Simulated assay, not measured.
Amino acid sequence: MFDWQDLRYFHELARAGSLSKAATELSVEHATVGRRIASLEATLGLKLVHRLPRSIRLTEDGLVVAELAATISESAQAIESFALRAKSALSGVVRISVPPTVGNFCVAQYMQTFHEAHPSLKIVMANTPDIAALDRGIADIAIRMVKPEEPSLLTRRIGMIRFGLYASRAYASRPAAQWSFIAYDASLNHVKHQTWLRRFVDGRPIVFETSDVIAQQMAARNGVGVAVLPTLLGERDAELVRLDVEAGPPEAALWLVTYPDLRRARAIKAVMAFLVDCIDREPLLKSA
């Protein structure tokens, strides 16, 4: 395989028409150009240049190689231009998985700011309370409410989500013994505040189960029962009141998660910084 630099020198020689002019364009000694051309001829096994006293003339083979070299030179310049654009502007797609409350009422709220800063970088967001499997390509970055156990993951605690018991104003006037409850379905029994609720019920009925926290909020507003909701939802809903209980639902830390190799990508870094900033802007999600 020939040296690409040899080909670049030959391309410049063919364009300039003499060793001295090519050397000037390349900012080297004309002897250097001569050595490069000789090296290319030796590698290809072809005579490319007739050396005349004051100029050069390409051989028949040299004319063909020069034409091909021009195409390669254009491609190289296109690659350089692409690299410059890629360095100056982030682009591509980054997939994130976040808890629904964080996604709907925090991340989405600031998405326009991110888009204005990075117009060529698209975020695809999955709102799910489940633990996204990053190793299956479901997401590049995740915010989890459970501390990751996988040793290969890069993790960082970025905030705290808090919960309370909420009901409609009319429902809240009932004695606690008459409360019915709204809960997550069994697929989310591992979540700390769900485990707490199952104990707190203490024999009272759970009348509605759903994995959708917004559906829980709507059901509570309409008097279906009492729900454990993130304070980010409950405190901002004028139709709900927070019920006073002696020991309320537990808090859950928010963990930012990705793989170390992905973390090195500029697009991943930008989205991770954006997610941290989203949490920092929201007082109800900040760590104590």
Rank of each mutant, 00 (worst) to 15 (best):
V98C: 03
A76E: 14
L63K: 14
R15S: 14
P249M: 06
V107Q: 07
W196P: 00
L154T: 06
I182T: 04
A288D: 13
P249A: 06
R35C: 05
A78E: 08
F200G: 02
S81E: 14
A89L: 12
S187E: 11
L188C: 02
L40C: 09
L154D: 03
V228L: 01
A70T: 07
D212M: 05
Q216I: 01
T195G: 12
V241C: 09
P119V: 09
A66N: 03
D261H: 10
D261W: 01
A83E: 15
E12T: 14
E150L: 14
V224A: 11
S152W: 11
G45A: 05
E282Q: 11
R57G: 02
V191H: 12
R281V: 01
R144I: 08
L58F: 11
P151V: 07
S187H: 08
R95W: 08
S187I: 03
D237P: 03
R144T: 13
M111S: 14
V245E: 08
M145A: 01
E116A: 15
Q217I: 00
V107H: 05
A89G: 06
E149F: 05
N222P: 00
V191I: 15
E251H: 02
V241K: 02
A177T: 12
W255Q: 07
L197H: 06
A70P: 00
R8D: 15
R199L: 05
T231H: 02
A78C: 01
A108Y: 12
Q217R: 15
R85Q: 14
H118R: 03
H118G: 00
D280Y: 01
F114E: 10
L84M: 10
A270I: 05
P260M: 11
V94E: 07
R198H: 10
V146A: 10
M111P: 01
A66G: 00
S18P: 00
G103P: 03
D280K: 11
S20D: 11
E74A: 14
P119I: 09
V65Q: 00
V94R: 07
L84C: 06
A139V: 10
A69G: 04
T59D: 04
H118D: 02
T231E: 11
R242E: 13
M125Q: 15
Y110H: 15
A83Q: 14
M1T: 11
I131W: 12
D135V: 12
H193S: 10
R157S: 11
H190D: 13
A108T: 15
R54V: 01
Q109D: 09
D212G: 01
T155W: 04
L121E: 08
